[in-house]
Amino acid sequence: MRLKLKIWRQQSRSAAGKFVSYPMDDANPDMSMLECLDVLNERLIEAGEDPVAFEHDCREGICGSCGFMINGVAHGPLPATTVCQLTLRHFKEGQELVLEPWRARAFPLIKDLVVDRRSFDRIISSGGYVSVSTGSAPDGNAILVSKESADRAMDAAACIGCGACVAACPNASAALFTGAKIAHLGILPQGKPERDVRALRMVAQMNAEGFGGCTNIGECTGVCPKEIPLEVIAAMNRDYIRGSWRERDNLVTTIRPFTEWSTGSKLKVDRATE
C-alpha cells in the first residue's frame, strides 16, 4: 500500500525543526507503524541520509517506550493501542500521516520523534514506591486485599508511562500519569501507610517539572493506550488534599528538574545549556 509520511525532523534540541515528507510506496498493510519507520530508515541509511530517530523497545505495547502524534492524535487513531501495535491496515490507501513528537516543556526534544521523559522518572522516584523491610518473602495472603481494591489498583498500575496523556492534554498536564502512580499504590494495604506523604511528594514534583494544571476534560483517557480512567486523577486530588490537611512535618522536597546529559554520555545529543 502507498502512504505519505510527513515527519518532524529536528537534529537536536537547539536546532530548528521542520516537517519532511517521505513517500512510502512499498508499505505492507500488516506492518506496524514502527516497522514502517524501520523500512523507511533502511532506505534512508542506504541513501546515506540520517535515519528518523524514534524510541522503541518491546514492540508489544507494554513497555511505554514508543509514542508520537499521528495526524494530531497521540498513538494514532486506534483506541487503547500504542504505535508499535498500530498496523497500517487501519489507514487508507494513499493517506498522508503527520508524525510529530510529544510537545511539552517537561518533555524536551532530543531528536526527531524522541523526547526526554525523565520528568516522569523523577515523579516516580519522589514517592512512587512502597517502603518495606527486606528479608524473606512475605507469606501469601498475610495481607488480605479485596477483589475490588485489587482490580482498581491493577487498572491504575496498567500505566506504562508513555506520556501520551501529557501529549494529548491541552494544558500539557501530567495528572493522569501521576494519578495512576499514586492510585495504584494508595489503593492497596501495602501502600496505605505512605499514602499522604506519597501524594504530597509526587504532586510537588509534578508541579516542579512545569507540567500544566488539570482541567478534567478527559483527553488523556481518550488517548491512553491502557485506558487509565479519569478516576485516578480524583484519587490523586483526594490524597493530596487529605495529605495537605494531615501533614505534620515538612517532609516534602523536590528534585530539581534537569534536562542536561552527563558529560560522559556517548549520546550525540544537544549538551548546550538552555
Binding site: 494530531g72 516543556r105 494544558n171 500544566g212 482541567t215 476534560i217 481518550g222
Partner: peptide
C-alpha cells in the same frame, strides 16, 4: 493556571485533534 498552561507547551503542535473532551470543557 492559564499562565501555567501557556508555559507548559512552548512549542505547539502543527495540528492536534480533540477526541474525548466536551466542547464546554474546552
Amino acid at each position: 493556571l492559564a499562565v501555567r498552561k501557556t508555559k507548559a507547551r512552548p512549542v505547539g503542535y502543527s495540528h492536534r485533534d480533540n477526541i474525548a473532551s466536551s466542547y464546554a470543557s474546552r
